[in-house]
Amino acid sequence: MISVSHLTKFYGPRKAIDDLSFEVQKGEIVGFLGPNGAGKSTTMKILTGFMPATDGKAVVAGHDVFEDPISVKRNVGYLPETPPVYTEMKVKDYLEFTGKLHQVPTTSLSKSVKNAIERTSLGDVQNRLIGNLSKGYRQRVGLAQALLHNPKVLILDEPTVGLDPKQIIEIRELIKSLGGDHTVILSSHILPEVTAICQRIIVLARGKIAAEDSLEGLTMRMKKGLIYSMEVKKPSSEGVDAIRKIPGISGVSSNGSKLLVEMTAGSRDVRDQVVEMAVNRGMGVLEFSPEKVSLEEIFLQLTTEENHSAAAHAGGM
């Protein structure tokens, strides 16, 4: 559905994206993940036909973005970083206008508008001026606008920014439900969001693809072993050394009363021995819990090349 090859974009002398190539299949939900300035928005703007690339080729819904932008635009619903709403218009009028922009036939326009309002739960505010709505509602109006003409491809630039937690959950569910019928690309720097919605993640850093995989794949790739966090009452270096000597433990680091215990992947379960040892050495175990390698860490490791030790959560491991 989307095919990008060797896409490059310069802003003056600055390279915003650098030789980007990837594919997105029909019905897939793909997340762009990356720090600010990684090239997420730029890539999206090129895919929507808003902005031409300096070099490379992008095909969306079977049409070349540079040669036939109008056909691409017809098949794409786009929610930019800032919801493109007219503050002096009422929600319903605005959606009717965007429907007309996308050449929704007059006969089905009011039905499409109603449908979009329902899906984004804007029913309560449909006759209010957009200027009087909160950021969260404006964001939803922007999303309704992108969905309205039932496009094959949805490109959503940070779709849940400014929403409250309840709304975030609703919008996530909505986006998830769009997968299958629609192909969705969304960008985010909120990592749990990408985890919650996307089937595949493309990590961008400095305009290049740092990693491209499913969440499980990414986690597997980064996970060297299982890490457990243990909070103790009286940390002692002697106790730490004793734990380190248990077979199957590949490293222990202490940070005040918090110990991080790393176990060798695939070895037998030695959690009970660790706790027992800590108790025997009189450290007083308060808490013992698995320390999941979070997407944040994966993300930092992938995007921070020069300073790995700062990215990994403890240098001693």
Binding site: T48, G49, F50, I70, S71, K73, R74, V76, Y78, P80, E81, T82, P83, P84, V85, Y86, T98, L101, H102, Q103, Q145
Partner: peptide, 10 residues
């Protein structure tokens, strides 16, 4: 930013 809406419509 509504210009983005106009320029990404067909």
């Amino acid at each position: 930013h509504t210009i983005e809406l106009l320029m990404t419509s067909p």
